[in-house]
């Protein structure tokens, strides 16, 4: 396979201008609590109580999470639904403010220097959000303009990224609502790479994709790691995906990190007789397969 015309990392990274030894991502004691409606189904308000605000309970979604990611590393966060993976990604993306703790992207504090951080990272979520009546190209050019990328440069990057994602350029003029889920996700990935991010946040990027699209996206992430040296934070609950793509994996359960290691290290320590990552996951998530299925896994 030939080398890509453009490396999908920022100029500072590709030219080595980013100070060496600087961590791509540092998370220290990150905590986030939400107020949620009380789930006690036995208590049903009656009379005037129905008009009163619902009782709220505090739910600690991210609990004193600390870890770091080195430049060029693909770091996986594995956990069941509701374990706090997306909340963690949203905090790093400057979309959520934590209650406690610090998050730094290449040394820049996410809370104190959000504008600098925003120029350095991109995010792809499971739910590809676009203006659905706008074409893929219109959505992508809009993003490029917000990041002050000239249209000509943006179009070159879009075509190159889509080529690597094995998506036909003809689909670029099609409104997003007429594209398949897999194609929408490829456009979402393209949107993330137009800006050549220093850090890519992939929040369950293959959830809901058909097997072919899933394989294509996974192949692209693998190439990012091998050819571009991109730094990726990947959340998933797909054990196989985590094992194939990630250099290291953190297991998140009920907002807490319960283990961090390489896939082989985790399997050695927690894999039991089967030695599989699946066994590690069930052991550390503290739930049986049936319980996870009930949660919507």
């Amino acid at each position: 396979m030939s080398e890509p015309a453009i490396r999908l990392v920022s100029d500072e990274i590709s030219t080595g201008e980013r100070p060496s030894g600087l961590l791509a991502l540092e998370i220290e004691g990150l905590t986030k609590t939400f107020r949620k409606d009380s789930k006690d189904k036995n208590v049903k308000p009656s009379g005037i109580r129905k008009l009163l605000p619902k009782a709220k309970t505090l739910s600690r979604v991210v609990d004193s999470v600390s870890f770091s990611v080195k430049p060029g590393e693909v770091f996986g966060v594995l956990g069941p639904n509701g374990s706090g993976k997306s909340t963690l990604i949203r905090i790093i993306s400057t979309l959520l403010l934590p209650d406690e703790g610090v998050a730094r992207v290449f040394g820049h504090d996410v809370m104190k220097e959000p504008d600098t951080v925003r120029r350095m990272l991109s995010r792809v979520s499971a739910d590809a959000a676009f203006f659905r009546r706008l074409s893929a190209m219109e959505n992508l050019i809009h993003t490029a303009r917000l990041y002050s990328i000239p249209q000509k440069t943006a179009i070159e990057r879009i075509k190159m990224i889509l080529e690597r994602l094995e998506m036909s350029g003809e689909k670029l003029e099609t409104p997003m609502l007429h594209l398949s889920r897999g194609m929408q996700q490829k456009v979402a990935i393209t949107r993330a790479f137009i800006i050549l991010p220093d850090l890519l946040l992939l929040d369950e990027p293959t959830t809901g994709l058909d097997p072919k699209s899933k394989r294509e996206v996974q192949k692209f992430i693998r190439e990012l790691k091998e050819r571009d040296g991109s730094t990726v934070l990947l959340t998933t609950h797909d054990m196989e995906e985590a094992e194939v793509l990630c250099d290291r994996i953190a297991i998140l359960n009920s907002g807490k990190i319960v283990a961090i290691d390489t896939p082989s290290g985790l399997k050695e320590r927690y894999g039991g007789e089967s030695g599989s990552l699946e066994t590690v996951f069930f052991a550390l998530a503290g739930k049986t397969l049936e319980e996870l299925e009930e949660d919507g896994e």
Partner: peptide
């Protein structure tokens, strides 16, 4: 409704 507000707010735009 479209969910794009998160991407607009993530952009480096005041």
């Amino acid at each position: 409704w479209e969910g794009t507000i998160e991407y607009t707010f993530m952009a480096p735009v005041s």
